[in-house]
Amino acid sequence: MNVQTQEIYSEVYSILNLLGESYIKKLPVSLFNMIKEEKRQDYNPKYDSEINLEQQSIKRETLSMIALFHLNYWCNSDEEKNELKTLFKTNEEKHQAEIREKYNPDNLFKKHSLQQEESTITNEVAMVEYKEPLFKRIINKIKIIFHIN
């Protein structure tokens, strides 16, 4: 097993201990034991229960694993489970939209044109400058609708 995976298990183990018995009890014993045994024994991070998890030095993969446990073992009702599923699905859609936006050849071309034309002071520049705020406004509106940070 590679070191990164072992470190993920170390972080997951620390978070489980932070969350406490009521969460650990709901995990299959074999799963919890696997995490405990496969973690990196010399890496035992301590987390601050006062600070949001995503603001502490936690790998994304760690938080993802905790999210997986939450969905499978810690939801108290179907309603809660469905809400979580919707959240992950929404985040997936935002993620895909960002990828499309980032790698859309049309956008790459637009950005390149804008950067070139900014350096020339002509009527064409004036037209591009007019477009730029409109462009940003549309993107901002999309981001506001989908609550993208």
């Binding site: 959240l87 985040n91 935002k94 940070n149």
Partner: peptide
Amino acid sequence: YENAGINQED
């Protein structure tokens, strides 16, 4: 999860 944008792929 919300703030970190944890998604289905994760």
